[in-house]
Amino acid sequence: MDNEVFTTLVGFLLLILLLLFFLPGRGLFSKWKRALLDSKRVRIEDALKHLYDCEYNNTGCSLDSISGNLSLKRDEAAGLIQKLQSLGLVSLGRDKIELTGEGRNYALRIIRVHRLWERYLADETSIHASEWHERAEDVEHILSAEQADELAAQIGNPLTDPHGDPIPSSEGKMPVKQGVPITQFCVNDHVKIIHLEDEPKTIFAQLVAEGLYVGQHLRIIEISEERVKFEVDDEVIVLAPIIAANISVVKFDETNRVRRNLKKLSELKVGDGGLVVGISNLIRGQQRRRLLDLGVVPGTKIKAEIQSLGGDPTGYRIRGATIAIRKKQASQIFIKEINE
């Protein structure tokens, strides 16, 4: 009897140990894999990325910003910069740190991998948005330029990452920066989101939680020092200016297509019809292509025809065929109601 209890305990212990070892993300196995990364090189590359960001956004870079961004002590950061200088990647001016041509190319290569990987995760995997950035932070130090080119070709040479940031070309070309923070616009302006800053993470998570995404059309209702208020897809969102400043937008001129008084396809009752106005950019990759191929494009007449026993999915009549779409996707398809 005692023997039985003993073997049972040993068995359970073994199982728990196995679990600890292989737990995805936090297990010893994945920790060991991460430790294989060359930490010195990672620091250099992170510093170059930060310097490039400063250059692209026209904000000056300093020792403090580097030590803050990479969470290093000041003297460590200084050592790092010296190292960069000795490698010929940066040049030190009187009060600023600048990238050399070589340093810029290096930085662009890292940024290309990072953004491509984020795009890949967004389009081709089921990994949640909140994990993209962190995973790309690891991968950017691993993938070679050739592998990055292969990846780009595979996913159709995308132009931007899922946050709307442009992906540098393999030759290191980058388009001119577009878009300004939403806080610089006026009341009643119609604007389109072109970028959501993904750092700091907490702010990005809040923007995602509000349901904001690149490509969305907004109408600004109020801009003050206390708050920024705007209307989007028939919802009103209020943000603190410091958070709203992380949304970059461009003025939107195609006024005829500003989405107002729209319904979601998921709100359509069985037997009712509508006209598709657009698919939100949150539907990406294969799912988006599939819907487009089946004929869910602006201008398509769509009719809710039949509901499944479980209530979801719903079968819609689309261009002569009956296609079942799940509620999750249907709530990202915008329609105008029509009365036949």
Binding site: G156, Q286, R289, R290, L292, D293, L294
Partner: peptide, 8 residues
């Protein structure tokens, strides 16, 4: 196939 433009 439904299309020739997508990637599969």
């Amino acid at each position: 196939t439904y299309s020739l433009l997508s990637t599969s």
